[in-house]
Design a protein around this nucleic acid. Structure first.
Length: 547
DNA sequence: TTAGGGTTAG
């Protein structure tokens, strides 16, 4: 196939009689540049342009800059630009400024833009236009550290009258959103003479990222039209705010809209919502939808399916998806390892981890959390310690607080409580309450009262955490009198955290419970049943408590 | 003869 393309390219190229009129040659080369794909072909045409002295042909040079940019060959594109025989016209400046916005070197966009402002002041050939400002403002958004320069661009835009241009306005709204300057974003939005779906979607994104979900909902309702990107922003916004039921409701609303079909981003987001809610029905429906519509099984979709099945308790389905996944990336492997680990299948998780390493895939810190948990859950203490101790050397990942959490859990579960306490005291960072609670729970399970008291004393002495933490520590050790005493001393005034929340799905209906919930319509029956269960599972008389 | 908006793992 490739050979055929090259042949037809060479034929087209070599059969172009060089004696033909220059204008025809230019058109031919231009058309070739617009259709070819390989870098070698671009270089051949570049050579022809030099040989035929066509370096000053505006559209041909533009196409060449675009071709090199599409191949991320910015040095070559810049070189072509620099060799332009006269001062390059605005069009060519624009192409190069735009090209840099799509690379990690966005500062080059602004560098060129500033240069253009200098020369453009003297030469009418290179005066910035609406495109230039759109690209320069986009560069300011990408760079994220040049807000004041973005504002300067805004001032210039207003002075030159480009603020009525919809693309310039969109770039401005988007820039203010990136810098979390919603007052400015809203002002530009309100003053735009024309808005399109991109303006509305940028504004929607701004409301979502600034945490104003009600405002986002209002923008979403007011939008004159919606496409898959706008739906994706709204659904992802709900997911980002842990409003999983709203995400699913929104997704179902989208399915009712005949003008739009879910895309990969939406499916991944909705699967995440299902995973958090334990909504296996909806999750399976999405899996079916993906199969039925022959949706491309990207690694992203496989990862989300594996994660969803694992979190909804269907580890066998997760394995099936994993085994059938054609292209697995680090995320796919990680979700399988973490899923197996959370199901207590530590040995299997470690086997998958070994396979991953054999394939030459390097773990990241999240993978290692899954792997260390797997060791912990399968009692492979030495294996876990060895991985923990070698993670920096082997993969260049320095242990973070979550890895220490795994280490404490690993040692604690194995009954090596003193070692676990030592590990906590050795930590470079402040231990969080998850770590203290893991240690205290282990003390409780192993009946080590002495160490538990030392740990609580240590926490009090080092001033780590407030009353809430201490109360939780006593709770993990089952010291309910202490918990009550602390809780009664105005703890609710200090505690502004959101209440713990859990979900369960019964016959397709998701039930949501908040900590100390009294609002569920069947709370009395539920409490009665829960007390009955607690009595039946309790072996220790001290543990017989009611909720 | 060049624009501007989106998602993902413990």
């Amino acid at each position: 196939m490739m050979g055929g393309q090259v042949n037809s390219f060479s034929q087209a190229f070599h059969h172009t009689p060089l004696a033909q009129p220059m204008s025809q040659l230019k058109i031919r080369l231009y058309q070739l540049l617009k259709h070819i794909q390989s870098l070698n072909q671009i270089k051949q045409i570049h050579a022809q342009i030099i040989l035929q002295s066509l370096g000053g042909t505006n559209n041909l040079i533009g196409a060449l800059i675009q071709s090199y940019s599409a191949h991320k060959k910015l040095k070559s594109a810049r070189n072509v630009f620099n060799k332009y025989p006269t001062l390059p016209p605005t069009f060519l400046w624009n192409l190069l400024i735009q090209a840099y916005t799509k690379t990690p070197f966005t500062e080059q966009s602004l560098h060129l833009f500033k240069q253009m402002l200098l020369v453009g002041g003297c030469h009418s050939l290179a005066v910035p236009d609406d495109y230039t400002f759109t690209f320069a403002i986009t560069a300011c958004s990408r760079q994220r550290t040049v807000f004041s320069y973005g504002q300067n661009c805004h001032t210039m835009v207003v002075k030159l009258g480009y603020d009525s241009d919809v693309c310039v306005g969109n770039a401005l709204v988007s820039m203010y959103v990136v810098y979390s300057e919603m007052v400015y974003a809203r002002k530009v939005f309100d003053e735009m003479p024309q808005r399109d779906i991109i303006t509305w979607t940028s504004m929607l994104k701004g409301c979502v990222t600034s945490g104003k979900i009600l405002e986002a909902e209002q923008v979403f309702v007011e939008m004159p039209e919606r496409n898959e990107v706008s739906w994706a922003v709204m659904i992802a916004g709900y997911v980002g705010h842990k409003m999983y039921n709203d995400a699913l409701r929104c997704f179902n609303d989208m399915l009712d809209d005949d003008n739009v079909r879910p895309n990969e981003a939406i499916l991944v987001c909705v699967l995440l919502a299902c995973a958090h809610l334990g909504q296996i029905n909806q999750g399976e429906w999405i899996h079916f939808y993906i199969e039925k519509n022959r949706f491309p099984k990207s690694s992203n979709v496989s990862t989300a399916l594996i994660d969803m099945y694992a979190k909804c308790g269907k580890i066998d389905y997760a394995k099936q998806v994993f085994n059938g996944a054609g292209n697995r990336d680090l995320l796919t492997w990680t979700s399988m390892i973490s899923g197996l680990s959370m199901h207590g299948l530590g040995k299997e998780a470690l086997k998958v981890f070994d396979e991953m390493l054999e394939q030459g895939i390097k773990p990241d810190n999240i993978t290692l959390v899954g792997v260390l948990n797997a060791c912990s859950h399968s009692g492979q203490v030495n294996e876990g310690l060895s991985i923990f101790n070698s993670m920096e050397r082997e993969w260049g990942i320095s242990p973070k607080i979550e890895h220490f959490g795994c280490l404490v859990d690993l040692l604690s579960r194995a009954g090596r409580l003193e070692d676990a306490f030592k590990a906590v005291k050795m930590m470079q960072m402040e231990p969080d309450d998850v770590i203290w609670r893991a240690l205290l729970s282990a003390c409780r399970i192993h009946g080590n009262v002495g160490l538990a008291e030392r740990v609580i004393e240590h926490v009090k002495k080092t001033g780590g955490g407030g009353r809430l933490l201490l109360s939780n520590l006593h709770a993990s050790f089952g010291q309910w009198d202490n918990v009550r005493r602390i809780r009664e001393s105005k703890i609710h005034k200090e505690d502004d955290s959101t209440p713990g929340c859990s979900y369960i799905e019964i016959e397709g209906v998701v039930h949501e419970f908040l900590a100390a919930d009294k609002l569920h319509p069947q709370i009395r029956e539920i409490t009665r049943k829960l007390n009955e269960v607690m009595k039946r599972i309790s072996l220790d008389g001290d543990d017989m408590r009611t909720v």
